[in-house]
Structures are given as C-alpha cells and as structure tokens.
C-alpha cells in the first residue's frame, strides 16, 4: 500500500569499499507513514531483509542488468508501530553506539571457536563497550547466548556477501528493553 518510495543508491558507497548499513537505517528512520524505500545495491542485500522485516517492511528484490540489485521495501499494513526494543535487540540501529574498543577477525577459526572467543571477550569488557568481530557465517548459536547474557548486538554480511560483521554492546539489551 506504499504510495511513494524514497530512493537510496548505496552502490557508490559499496564500490568505494564502504559500509552502507548506517545510511540505509538512517534513510529508513526518516521515512514518512506509508512510505517505502527503493534501495539500489551491487549485491542482493539478504541480511537487510530480516532486519527491515523485523521493522515491518516486506521486500521485493530484483536483479538489474549488470548484476546490480533493486529492492523495494514496502511497509506492511498494521506494522507501522516501531518494534519493541526488547524483542529486537539484534536489529537495533547501531549508529549511536560508541566506536568498538576491540576488533577480532574470527573468519579462519574452526567452528565453534569464533563463538568461544567472542563470549570470552565479552566477559572481559566493561558495560557499554562495543566489540566488533568478523565471521564467515551468521553466528546463529551465539545470538541466543548473547541475549541471555543481556548484551545487544547487530550484524550483517559485508558487501562481499562472505564476511559477516557483528557488533556486540555489552549489557545494552537490558537497558534498551527498559
């Protein structure tokens, strides 16, 4: 039922090697009621489907000539209210998070070593600190463990579609839910 779409072309950011996630979430937060987002990217931005799906957007993706992708994110009826922070700690916009105090590259570790190291690192950090880690797949068994320990996170595949970057903010889930 979207009457209009705001267009956002993140291809220049991606081609320059940048991370368009914040630009996309910024554009989404500025959408008016009933407005959708027309996103142009150099790859099929699969992780966004669940992130924006949690915010009440349906998606329609189509490949354009030259391998680029156009995705229409359309607000679903009855889903205009913002999602509850408690349920969606994973999808929360991280643009207001402080810069990570620790970076890890866990891409070449045998599973489940990436999960072990991230959890060990979270135990050593202070409340409010942010940890950044690179992985080679979505850490589906790690996420419930982070939630149980009260940490907030957000993650998505990078532009190459192979590297998954997760940001974990220590002890932030309880605060967001309050």
């Amino acid at each position: 039922m979207a009457s209009s779409f705001v267009e956002l072309d993140v291809r220049p950011i991606l081609r320059a090697g940048g991370e368009p996630f914040e630009a996309i979430m910024g554009a989404v937060s500025k959408l008016g009621p009933g407005q959708g987002l027309r996103l142009l990217a150099t790859f099929k931005p699969v992780p966004l489907f669940s992130v924006l799906g949690a915010r009440g957007f349906a998606h329609e993706a189509q490949e354009l000539a030259g391998g680029d992708w156009e995705v229409l994110f359309r607000p679903e009826e009855g889903a205009s209210q913002p999602p509850s922070a408690a349920a969606e700690t994973g999808s929360a916009d991280a643009s207001d998070w402080p810069a990570p105090v620790q970076h890890m590259d866990n891409r070449d570790l045998d599973p489940p070593e990436p999960m072990v190291r991230i959890l060990a690192a979270t135990e050593a950090l202070k409340e409010g600190d942010v940890l950044s880690a690179l992985l080679c797949r979505e850490p589906i068994f790690l996420l419930p463990e982070l939630a149980k320990r009260g940490h907030a996170w957000r993650g998505a595949f990078e532009g190459d579609g192979k590297t998954y970057r997760i940001l974990v903010r220590i002890g932030a889930a309880g605060k967001a839910a309050a």
Partner: peptide, 21 residues
C-alpha cells in the same frame, strides 16, 4: 558432540576454562 557441548558449556563459555568440542 556439538549439541552436547553447546548445552553443557554454552552458558559458561568465556567465564572460565571450558573443554573444546
């Protein structure tokens, strides 16, 4: 082995030494 490890040691990972899978 993996599911048993996750069930038993998942909750305490990072809080002290734990066995590997």
């Amino acid at each position: 082995a993996f599911l048993t490890w996750l069930e038993c040691y998942g909750p305490v990972l990072g809080k002290g030494p734990t066995p590997r899978v």
